[in-house]
Amino acid sequence: MSELTAPAFSKPVHLLNMVDDIEIIHLERVDECCGFGGTFCVAEEAVSVKIRKDRVADHILHGAEYITDVDMSCLMHMEGLLHRDKSTLKVIHIAEILNGGIQ
């Protein structure tokens, strides 16, 4: 939560740091929302799509190969766009990484 002044601590990042051979990429907007939450993506489709697009672009800009998260719906939201754009960027759930899912 980049808004707070308390020392930053992310459980997922902490766990991912314990996995060998992966590098964590830092984004321009470290924790901006993907835009999928609740009924928002239905009620406010245009804005939701734009948020997702910007979020994916931030990953591409910083050379990410994978987008990971603890939330399946966020991942699915972004995966939809990656598919459509035939991007080589992949989404992967954090559990898959922690289970050694990256080959």
């Binding site: 939560m1 609740g38 928002f40 406010e44």
Partner: peptide, 16 residues
């Protein structure tokens, strides 16, 4: 009535 739907409920507003 539609304004409360203009939120993805990400919570950043509460944190700032």
């Amino acid at each position: 009535a539609d304004l409360p739907f203009a939120s993805s409920l990400c919570g950043s507003c509460s944190n700032v």
